[in-house]
């Protein structure tokens, strides 16, 4: 066999080895649905959910739940989820540990101001106050001084 032919034989062998390695290293679930590993879908589907929803909280915190869902006109928070303010509760009901943000909100006024601080970009329908300037709404006082029940906050006009 001539030298030139041998060179191309070497090339051919390289191609075959590549093909073999390629087919042997292919993940099993690749190509079941498309060019990706179907095994990953199973993994995605079985990920743990951490936000538990307020119906779960109700089991222990019935009073707070009833306040929150109350149909009284003063209860403006009736559409809120507990975890929107208190942090996600995945580990909490199971193991009795504190919620990720702390079941007890560390700075209530700050939490209120996330939604109720006066911002020009907020829709007008949202009740808003400012703690600074001439229009300040009782600056220096905690919100809970007057709005005692934050789950069912009284809305003074």
């Amino acid at each position: 066999m001539s030298w030139t032919a041998r060179v191309f034989l070497v090339v051919l062998i390289i191609f075959i080895v590549y093909g073999a390695v390629k087919s042997l290293t292919k993940p099993k679930s690749l190509g079941v649905f498309g060019h990706y590993r179907a095994a990953n879908i199973s993994k995605q589907l079985s990920k743990e959910t951490k936000f538990v929803g307020r119906e779960t909280c109700k089991a222990c915190h019935e009073q707070e739940y009833n306040d929150l869902c109350s149909e009284e006109p003063s209860s403006a928070h009736r559409n809120l989820q507990c975890e929107a303010c208190h942090g996600l509760g995945v580990a909490h009901p199971k193991e009795g540990v504190a919620l990720s943000c702390g079941c007890k909100i560390p700075d209530v006024t700050k939490q209120c101001m996330y939604c109720h601080e006066m911002l020009p970009s907020r829709p007008k329908s949202m009740p808003q106050i400012t703690l600074k300037g001439p229009e300040a709404h009782f600056p220096g006082m905690a919100c809970t001084t007057c709005h005692t029940n934050t789950h069912k906050p009284a809305f003074y006009k």
Binding site: V32, L45, S46
Partner: peptide, 27 residues
């Protein structure tokens, strides 16, 4: 010879991709 051998080798060892049913991957 090499091509045939490689072909046979790949056919035997080719991983059976659809051993698990499609819907089994979806839990």
């Amino acid at each position: 010879t090499i091509t045939l051998a490689a072909g046979a080798y790949l056919t035997v060892l080719k991983p059976s991709a659809n051993a698990k049913e499609e819907k089994d991957w979806l839990n």
